[in-house]
Structures are given as C-alpha cells and as structure tokens.
Design a protein around this nucleic acid. Structure first.
Lengths: 200, 200
DNA sequence: CTAAAAGTTTGCAGTGACTGCAACTTAGTG
DNA sequence: CACTAAGTTGCAGTCACTGCAAACTTTTAG
C-alpha cells in the first residue's frame, strides 16, 4: 500500500532530482552545491543525503524498474527467438520508460554531455545491469554463467542502447528512440556480418 | 634530454602511486588518506595534488603510452588484414607493457576488485582510448568517423581486454596474458558466428 | 482519543578531498 | 656566481559527505 508518507518521499526525491538537473543544466555541475539543490527543493542539506549518497547520484538517478527486470524479461522470451530480437523485446519496456520520462531524460543526457565527469557513473550503472544480463544471456545460449561471450554480448547491448540514447538526445528528442535502438542493433548485426566475410 | 629534475619527478610519481596502491591494498581505499599516502612517499600532501588530480587517479594511473598509440598502430597495419587480427597486433605493445609492469598491474587490479568504486574510472579511461580507436576502425573499414559499428567494435575490444585483465589478475598472474586476450577475441569471433547462424 | 512506536527531518560537529595563492627551495644556464 | 625557471610547501578556504542525537510527524494500538 502507498501511504501518505511514501508519497511525500517520492515527491521530495523527485524535487531533489529535478532541482539538481535544472541547476546543473543552467550553471554547470561544479557551480552548483548540494546546499543550493536542497534549498531549491526546500529541504535541509542533510536531508539531501538521506536520499542520495552523492551529488552525482541525484543527477544520474537510480535505474530502478518496479516491474520485472530486463534480465527476467530476457529469460521469459522463448529460447528459439534469436538473441538480438529477444534482447529488443526484453528492452522494450525500458525504452518506453525513457520516452515516458522524456523531458527528464533529455535534460539528463544534456547535463551528462556537458559534464563528462558524470559519464563514468552512467556507464558503471549500465555495467551493473549488463553483468546481470550476461548471466541471462549465458543461460539462453546454454553457456556457463561467467562465459566470455555472454559478457561481451551484454556489454555490446548496453553500448548500443547508450549510443542510441546519445543520438536521441542530440536530436533533442526529435528522432524516434525505439527506431534508433533497432537501428543500432541492426547496424551491429550487419557490421558483424561484414566483418565475418572480410575475416574469413 | 632527461635531466635530474625529470628523473626526480618520475621517482616521486612512482613513489606516490606505489604508496597509494600498497596502502589501499592493506587497508581498503577509504581507510587511507591523501596525507598518509604523501607521508609514505615523503612529500607534502599539497605536492600529491601536483601529480594527481584526485586520490583515485593515483591508484588507476594514467594509461600514457610514450610511443605511438593503439590508434596509430591500428592505422599502420595493412588494410587487408581483417579487423580482429589487426586489433591484436595493435594491442600487442600495450599487453607487453602490462606484463612488464606485472607486479603493479596485478596489485592494481586487486585493489580495483576490492574497491568497486574505482571501476567506473577504469572503464572511463578505457572509454577514452576506445573512442579514439573507433575513429581508426572507421577509417580502416571506409566508414564515416562517427559510425555506429565502429564505436561498438571499439567498445567490444575494450571490454575483451578488460575481461582478459580481470581473469589474469584472478589467476594471480599465473595465466598467460596474451593468450587470454587472444582467447577473448577468439571466443568473441566464434560466438558472433554462432549468433549469426541462429539469427538468420 | 491518546500514548507509545516507528519513521523522517534537521542541526551540529567533524573528517577529508581538493584549490588558489604566495613564499620558499632547488636545479639548470650563461 | 648570479639569474631564472621549475618544483615544493604551508595556509586558508570551500564543499562533499558522515555519525549522532534531538525534534518532529505519521502510524499503530490500546
């Protein structure tokens, strides 16, 4: 059940995130202090740290999916489906989420682009999800859980999604995100094919 | 010319790095202060920051190659050579360097493993090199400089190398590093091939 | 309705990373 | 031996972040 308390917490968290994004966008991340962010969200600085471990976290947010994770969804797709289509299907809800939170994500990507020190964190966050997915991919392919290829495939999908997001943000959201992701995977498959031909 | 001054600088830098690694290995990164590291290297804390922008930098080091970069070497390999062998060749000197600095790298990887907060930085550092390589790969394949596939391929090689390094470190240096890297690339090519068959 | 329990916010005091500046010391140069 | 350029250091200051305990608010139970 969602009590009033919980609702208020969500509100506060959203306020902090959005204040952090807005201010960082206006002035650049290192010209914004936690104090100012808290001020803008109308809570004490100490409270800020009850919600986020670091200032950067307030910008990046936490990729928490309420429902089943990419990982779960990937395992749910029938095993006959080839990896790339399966991955696309498992990713679909996430992508919809990005579009639903369109404003925030466009802003977030812009801030990250203008403050490259944030990129490591973004990549690292993706990396966690990727490592989980790697296990699921391995299962699908009947490989041991810590298989090289599974890890590489997972990394690749993460990179593809990130590249698509960047491109989407660069177009200021004019491009169609699902289309861009499909394109990234398509280019990938095609490129790998080309590579195989040249390599053989 | 390499004056005494320069030699001293190198010494100091090495001393700081090695002190940072040793202490972080013994006590864990956040139980070591910059003051203690400087103390151990026998310089003032202020001097530490003349050498490294952040504490973490002293652990990760800066992947500075004196000679030509991976990027340059990749372009030097004849265009007929397929991408993966070309990449292996371009990477060879780096790998030798890792082996030459064997002790430091094994220690470094152990510290990173035990202090995951460092991972983002390591990945980010790799990411810079990858983005450069992406350009070179694109050139080799006759693609535009910001091509999707080139970026994905570059990311993949970075991940392969990193995975090989991790495995090498896990074996405490008993495994043969060049062998592990070749294996990573091999598994990769093979896996992609399998995937193509399933996917068509 | 009320009092205790449980959860949340806040202030305070402290640690430690990191920076700019100016004084000081030392190595290279003519 | 100056003279200069480069490197080192101390100092004062800002800001991220933490633990603790007090104050406050919501929920729960009697």
């Amino acid at each position: 059940m969602l009590t009033r308390r919980d609702r208020k917490k969500q509100q506060t968290k959203a306020a902090l995130m959005s204040a952090a994004l807005r201010l960082a966008d206006e002035r650049g991340l290192d010209h914004v202090t936690v104090e100012e962010i808290s001020e803008a969200a109308d809570v004490s600085p100490r409270t800020f740290f009850n919600y986020f471990a670091t200032k950067d976290d307030a910008i990046i947010g936490e990729q928490i999916a309420d429902g089943p994770s990419v990982c779960d969804r990937l395992l749910a797709v029938p095993a006959e489906v080839p990896l790339i289509p399966a991955m696309l299907e498992a990713l679909a809800p996430e992508i919809q989420q990005f579009q639903a939170d369109r404003e925030i994500w466009l802003l977030r990507m812009r801030v990250i682009k203008n403050n490259p020190s944030l990129l490591p964190l973004l990549v690292a966050r993706g990396g966690i999800a990727e490592r989980e997915s790697a296990g699921a991919i391995a299962t699908r392919l009947g490989l041991p859980a810590d298989d090289y290829f599974a890890l590489l495939a997972a990394t690749l999908t993460g990179t593809a999604v990130r590249a698509a997001m960047m491109r989407w943000a660069d177009s200021e959201g004019h491009d169609d995100l699902p289309q861009l992701v499909r394109e990234a995977f398509g280019v990938l498959a095609e490129g790998l094919n080309t590579q195989r031909k040249k390599g053989d």
